[in-house]
Protein backbone atom coordinates (compact mmCIF):
# COMPACT_ATOMS: atom_id res chain seq x y z
CA UNK A 1 0.00 0.00 0.00
CA UNK A 2 1.38 3.41 -0.87
CA UNK A 3 1.64 5.89 1.99
CA UNK A 4 -0.81 8.78 2.53
CA UNK A 5 0.12 11.81 0.44
CA UNK A 6 2.54 14.32 1.93
CA UNK A 7 1.05 17.15 3.97
CA UNK A 8 2.33 20.72 4.17
CA UNK A 9 4.64 20.06 7.12
CA UNK A 10 6.28 17.20 5.23
CA UNK A 11 6.69 19.35 2.11
CA UNK A 12 8.47 21.90 4.33
CA UNK A 13 10.73 19.19 5.77
CA UNK A 14 11.81 18.14 2.28
CA UNK A 15 12.30 21.78 1.24
CA UNK A 16 14.63 22.20 4.23
CA UNK A 17 16.44 19.00 3.31
CA UNK A 18 16.88 20.32 -0.24
CA UNK A 19 18.66 23.39 1.17
CA UNK A 20 21.52 21.06 2.14
CA UNK A 21 21.76 19.34 -1.27
CA UNK A 22 25.26 19.45 -2.66
CA UNK A 23 26.75 20.79 0.59
CA UNK A 24 29.09 17.82 1.03
CA UNK A 25 31.33 17.49 4.07
CA UNK A 26 30.36 20.55 6.11
CA UNK A 27 28.43 21.15 9.33
CA UNK A 28 24.67 21.35 8.90
CA UNK A 29 23.29 23.69 11.56
CA UNK A 30 19.49 23.53 11.47
CA UNK A 31 17.68 25.59 14.10
CA UNK A 32 14.00 24.73 14.58
CA UNK A 33 12.13 21.45 14.45
CA UNK A 34 11.34 21.28 10.72
CA UNK A 35 14.92 22.27 9.71
CA UNK A 36 16.32 19.64 12.10
CA UNK A 37 14.11 16.94 10.60
CA UNK A 38 15.08 18.18 7.13
CA UNK A 39 18.82 18.05 7.83
CA UNK A 40 18.60 14.50 9.21
CA UNK A 41 16.52 13.50 6.19
CA UNK A 42 19.08 15.02 3.81
CA UNK A 43 21.88 13.08 5.45
CA UNK A 44 19.89 9.84 5.49
CA UNK A 45 19.26 10.14 1.73
CA UNK A 46 21.10 12.35 -0.75
CA UNK A 47 23.66 14.18 1.43
CA UNK A 48 25.44 11.42 3.39
CA UNK A 49 28.63 13.38 4.14
CA UNK A 50 26.90 16.16 6.08
CA UNK A 51 27.98 16.61 9.74
CA UNK A 52 25.35 17.09 12.43
CA UNK A 53 25.41 17.70 16.18
CA UNK A 54 23.32 16.32 19.02
CA UNK A 55 22.26 19.88 19.82
CA UNK A 56 24.89 19.99 22.53
CA UNK A 57 28.64 19.62 22.01
CA UNK A 58 28.95 16.36 20.05
CA UNK A 59 29.14 15.58 16.35
CA UNK A 60 27.19 12.39 15.79
CA UNK A 61 26.45 9.91 13.05
CA UNK A 62 23.11 8.23 12.51
CA UNK A 63 19.46 9.06 11.89
CA UNK A 64 17.48 9.40 15.09
CA UNK A 65 14.12 10.80 16.25
CA UNK A 66 13.80 14.49 17.15
CA UNK A 67 13.63 15.09 20.88
CA UNK A 68 15.58 11.93 21.65
CA UNK A 69 19.28 11.33 22.29
CA UNK A 70 21.26 10.25 19.22
CA UNK A 71 21.80 6.56 18.58
CA UNK A 72 24.80 6.78 16.26
CA UNK A 73 28.50 6.99 17.03
CA UNK A 74 30.02 10.20 18.33
CA UNK A 75 32.46 11.30 15.66
CA UNK A 76 33.74 14.46 17.26
CA UNK A 77 33.51 17.23 19.81
CA UNK A 78 32.19 20.69 19.00
CA UNK A 79 31.83 22.85 22.12
CA UNK A 80 30.61 26.44 21.68
CA UNK A 81 34.23 27.53 21.78
CA UNK A 82 34.96 25.67 18.55
CA UNK A 83 31.71 26.56 16.78
CA UNK A 84 32.94 30.02 15.82
CA UNK A 85 36.13 28.55 14.36
CA UNK A 86 33.94 26.41 12.11
CA UNK A 87 31.69 29.38 11.29
CA UNK A 88 34.62 31.59 10.34
CA UNK A 89 36.21 28.77 8.32
CA UNK A 90 33.08 28.70 6.18
CA UNK A 91 32.41 24.97 6.69
CA UNK A 92 28.84 25.37 7.93
CA UNK A 93 25.34 25.93 6.57
CA UNK A 94 22.90 27.35 9.09
CA UNK A 95 19.10 27.55 8.88
CA UNK A 96 17.87 30.18 11.34
CA UNK A 97 14.33 31.32 12.16
CA UNK A 98 13.97 35.10 11.92
CA UNK A 99 11.22 37.17 13.52
CA UNK A 100 11.48 39.62 10.62
CA UNK A 101 13.01 39.33 7.14
CA UNK A 102 13.09 41.83 4.26
CA UNK A 103 13.59 41.69 0.51
CA UNK A 104 17.41 41.83 0.68
CA UNK A 105 17.56 39.07 3.28
CA UNK A 106 18.20 41.23 6.33
CA UNK A 107 16.80 39.41 9.35
CA UNK A 108 15.91 40.40 12.89
CA UNK A 109 15.99 38.17 15.96
CA UNK A 110 16.97 40.90 18.42
CA UNK A 111 14.38 43.59 19.00
CA UNK A 112 11.09 44.81 17.51
CA UNK A 113 10.48 48.56 17.47
CA UNK A 114 12.95 51.26 18.48
CA UNK A 115 16.25 49.61 19.32
CA UNK A 116 16.96 51.93 22.26
CA UNK A 117 13.73 50.86 23.94
CA UNK A 118 12.14 47.98 22.03
CA UNK A 119 8.43 47.27 22.05
CA UNK A 120 9.34 43.60 22.06
CA UNK A 121 12.76 42.41 23.16
CA UNK A 122 13.68 39.12 21.53
CA UNK A 123 16.69 36.85 21.94
CA UNK A 124 19.53 39.10 20.82
CA UNK A 125 21.59 38.81 17.63
CA UNK A 126 23.23 35.54 18.74
CA UNK A 127 25.56 34.46 15.90
CA UNK A 128 23.44 35.89 13.09
CA UNK A 129 25.77 38.75 12.04
CA UNK A 130 28.74 36.37 11.76
CA UNK A 131 26.81 33.56 10.09
CA UNK A 132 25.58 35.77 7.26
CA UNK A 133 29.03 37.09 6.30
CA UNK A 134 30.89 33.81 6.82
CA UNK A 135 29.12 30.82 5.29
CA UNK A 136 25.97 29.50 3.60
CA UNK A 137 22.94 30.84 5.46
CA UNK A 138 19.28 29.97 4.96
CA UNK A 139 16.15 30.90 6.85
CA UNK A 140 13.03 29.06 7.94
CA UNK A 141 9.71 30.84 8.55
CA UNK A 142 7.02 28.47 9.87
CA UNK A 143 4.22 30.99 9.31
CA UNK A 144 4.64 33.19 6.25
CA UNK A 145 2.97 36.54 6.98
CA UNK A 146 3.35 40.29 6.65
CA UNK A 147 4.40 40.38 10.28
CA UNK A 148 7.55 38.46 9.36
CA UNK A 149 8.06 39.53 5.73
CA UNK A 150 8.44 43.27 6.29
CA UNK A 151 9.58 46.13 4.02
CA UNK A 152 12.50 46.89 6.39
CA UNK A 153 13.58 44.95 9.45
CA UNK A 154 13.57 47.07 12.62
CA UNK A 155 17.21 46.17 13.29
CA UNK A 156 19.67 43.97 11.41
CA UNK A 157 20.81 40.72 13.06
CA UNK A 158 21.46 38.60 9.96
CA UNK A 159 23.05 40.77 7.29
CA UNK A 160 21.24 41.17 3.96
CA UNK A 161 22.79 41.78 0.55
CA UNK A 162 22.29 45.57 0.54
CA UNK A 163 23.86 46.14 3.94
CA UNK A 164 26.74 43.81 3.17
CA UNK A 165 27.42 45.66 -0.07
CA UNK A 166 27.47 48.97 1.82
CA UNK A 167 29.88 47.50 4.37
CA UNK A 168 32.37 46.55 1.64
CA UNK A 169 34.34 43.55 0.43
CA UNK A 170 35.15 42.21 3.91
CA UNK A 171 31.41 41.69 4.37
CA UNK A 172 30.59 40.33 0.92
CA UNK A 173 33.66 38.12 0.34
CA UNK A 174 32.14 34.98 1.88
CA UNK A 175 28.51 35.99 2.01
CA UNK A 176 26.27 33.22 0.72
CA UNK A 177 22.56 33.62 1.46
CA UNK A 178 20.89 30.53 0.01
CA UNK A 179 17.14 30.11 0.47
CA UNK A 180 14.18 31.06 2.62
CA UNK A 181 11.78 28.20 3.28
CA UNK A 182 8.29 28.98 4.57
CA UNK A 183 5.00 27.15 4.96
CA UNK A 184 3.99 28.64 1.59
CA UNK A 185 7.06 28.23 -0.59
CA UNK A 186 10.77 28.52 -1.20
CA UNK A 187 12.52 31.80 -1.98
CA UNK A 188 15.94 32.99 -3.04
CA UNK A 189 17.48 36.18 -4.41
CA UNK A 190 17.72 37.43 -7.96
CA UNK A 191 21.40 37.62 -8.86
CA UNK A 192 21.28 41.16 -10.29
CA UNK A 193 19.04 43.12 -7.91
CA UNK A 194 19.56 40.85 -4.89
CA UNK A 195 15.86 41.16 -4.17
CA UNK A 196 13.87 38.19 -3.02
CA UNK A 197 12.13 36.04 -5.60
CA UNK A 198 9.80 33.09 -5.51
CA UNK A 199 11.68 29.92 -6.32
CA UNK A 200 8.71 27.60 -5.86
CA UNK A 201 5.33 27.49 -4.20
CA UNK A 202 4.22 24.45 -2.22
CA UNK A 203 1.53 22.22 -3.72
CA UNK A 204 -1.88 23.83 -3.23
CA UNK A 205 -0.46 27.35 -2.72
CA UNK A 206 -1.01 30.11 -5.29
CA UNK A 207 1.41 32.89 -6.16
CA UNK A 208 -1.25 35.44 -5.20
CA UNK A 209 -1.53 33.91 -1.76
CA UNK A 210 2.22 34.29 -1.30
CA UNK A 211 2.24 37.89 -2.55
CA UNK A 212 -0.63 38.77 -0.22
CA UNK A 213 1.26 37.37 2.77
CA UNK A 214 4.46 39.28 1.95
CA UNK A 215 5.03 42.90 3.00
CA UNK A 216 7.24 43.74 0.00
CA UNK A 217 7.13 43.02 -3.73
CA UNK A 218 8.55 39.61 -4.66
CA UNK A 219 10.16 38.88 -7.99
CA UNK A 220 7.97 36.37 -9.84
CA UNK A 221 9.27 34.48 -12.87
CA UNK A 222 7.16 33.59 -15.89
CA UNK A 223 6.79 30.05 -14.65
CA UNK A 224 6.69 29.42 -10.91
CA UNK A 225 7.50 25.77 -10.20
CA UNK A 226 5.82 23.72 -7.51
CA UNK A 227 7.98 22.55 -4.59
CA UNK A 228 8.77 18.88 -5.03
CA UNK A 229 6.95 16.32 -2.92
CA UNK A 230 8.74 13.74 -0.80
CA UNK A 231 9.13 10.28 -2.27
CA UNK A 232 8.04 7.13 -0.43
CA UNK A 233 11.42 6.57 1.17
CA UNK A 234 11.49 10.14 2.46
CA UNK A 235 7.94 9.92 3.80
CA UNK A 236 8.78 6.71 5.62
CA UNK A 237 11.92 8.27 7.13
CA UNK A 238 10.00 11.35 8.28
CA UNK A 239 7.00 9.49 9.67
CA UNK A 240 8.61 6.41 11.14
CA UNK A 241 12.22 7.24 11.91
CA UNK A 242 12.95 10.94 12.38
CA UNK A 243 9.64 12.34 13.62
CA UNK A 244 7.38 9.48 14.72
CA UNK A 245 5.54 11.68 17.25
CA UNK A 246 4.69 14.50 14.85
CA UNK A 247 6.81 17.28 16.36
CA UNK A 248 6.74 18.91 12.90
CA UNK A 249 3.11 19.88 13.46
CA UNK A 250 4.12 22.14 16.35
CA UNK A 251 5.65 24.42 13.70
CA UNK A 252 3.38 23.78 10.71
CA UNK A 253 -0.29 23.22 11.48
CA UNK A 254 -2.12 21.05 8.96
Amino acid sequence: MSPAPADRAEICVVACAEAFRGNGEILGAPIGIVPIIGARLARATFEPDLLLTDGEAHLVYGTWPVGEPPSGATEGWLPYRAVFDVVWSGRRHVIMTPSQIDSYGNTNISAIGDYARPTVQLLGVRGAPGNAVSHPTSYWVPKHSRRVFVPRVDSVSGVGWDNARKAGPAATEFMDLRVVITDLGVFDWETETRQMRIRSVHPGVTVDEVLAATGFPLIVGDEVPTTREPDETELRLIREVIDPHGARYREVKV
Binding site: S110, V125, A171, E173
Partner: peptide, 10 residues
Protein backbone atom coordinates in the same frame (compact mmCIF):
# COMPACT_ATOMS: atom_id res chain seq x y z
CA UNK B 1 34.49 40.60 9.63
CA UNK B 2 31.73 39.73 12.08
CA UNK B 3 29.41 42.63 12.83
CA UNK B 4 29.80 44.28 9.42
CA UNK B 5 26.46 45.38 7.99
CA UNK B 6 24.55 44.54 11.18
CA UNK B 7 23.02 46.44 14.11
CA UNK B 8 26.20 45.70 16.06
CA UNK B 9 27.93 48.65 14.39
CA UNK B 10 24.96 51.00 14.87
Amino acid sequence: RVGLGSLVLD
